[in-house]
Computed example of a mutant assay.
Amino acid sequence: MTDVALVLVTGSSSGLGRNTANALADDGHDVVIHVRTPARLTELGDTVRWKGAVTGDLTDLDGVRGVARQAAEFGRFDAVIHNAGVLHAPEALTVNTVAPYVLTALMDKPARLVFLSSSMHRTGSTDLRRLTEGPASYDDTKLWVTTLALALASRWEGTTSHAVDPGWVPTRMGGPGAPDDLAAGHETQVWLATDHNVMPNTGGYWYHRQSQSPHPAARDAKFQAHLIHVLENHTGVPLE
């Protein structure tokens, strides 16, 4: 049995984020959900089951900063699951890579960080001029957020960090014909956020609770440092 955890899940209004938040709440955890606008809260039904909610548009840096300010009102989280994601440019860069970076930099360091990746990160580009000058593809953004997750794995004492490939599941983004199991799409995130028996305890790239090998660049210390430097300059938000 795990202890009750305080967990923030971004992109909670539908799909994997909603399923993740529901599973955590069903297990008795204190869940803070994130939705783009207050109107989206009505789509989640009984809001009494949530510890709270934060709102903000993650395609906009001011919106991301607002989410960080609201999250600070709950204190230090046991886990933050960076679930929010979009498929198409130009929003993909901000939502999939920049927002997780800025939120991580601005919020109190949680005990656990979980970042949503994708198997498509393996065809992403290591040319970080795409981050600042464009165009950046979905694959690029997922390689970069995977790299960020693994870069953070040993950066802060008391904080673990993992990346998760949830599979190609039948959500609004994945489409009705997606072949992977929908339930398995959120179970790894819940496990990483709450279980005390995760091995490796930090720096893992996971698919359905199995450790996998990511794109080699994601574990390359020089590329990790370069990515963080570019993100700091691009956003004006230092990581430390």
Rank of each mutant, 00 (worst) to 15 (best):
A218M: 07
R18N: 10
D195E: 14
V4N: 10
P176C: 05
W168N: 11
L41W: 01
T10P: 14
P90A: 02
Y101P: 02
I228S: 05
L192E: 11
D108F: 00
P170W: 00
A183S: 14
R76A: 10
P90C: 04
Q70T: 11
G45K: 06
P214H: 02
K142H: 05
T47E: 02
V169H: 08
N22H: 09
A184Q: 13
H162F: 01
A151P: 11
P179Y: 00
D3T: 15
Q70I: 05
E232F: 02
Y205L: 10
A71M: 10
D139I: 01
W168T: 06
A53Q: 12
Q189I: 03
D46K: 06
V198W: 00
E43V: 06
T235D: 12
M1Y: 04
T59Y: 00
A149I: 02
E240H: 08
G11V: 02
Y101G: 02
S118N: 08
V31P: 14
G158K: 10
A92Q: 10
L6M: 13
F223M: 08
L61G: 07
S117E: 06
L231T: 05
H234A: 09
V164L: 03
P135I: 03
G185P: 14
D27P: 11
P166Q: 11
L152M: 13
H215R: 14
Y207P: 10
D140E: 10
L103P: 13
R122I: 01
A193Y: 03
G66I: 08
A136P: 12
G45H: 02
A218N: 09
T123K: 15
S118L: 03
H234N: 07
A53I: 09
A136T: 07
A163R: 04
G174P: 10
S118V: 01
A71V: 07
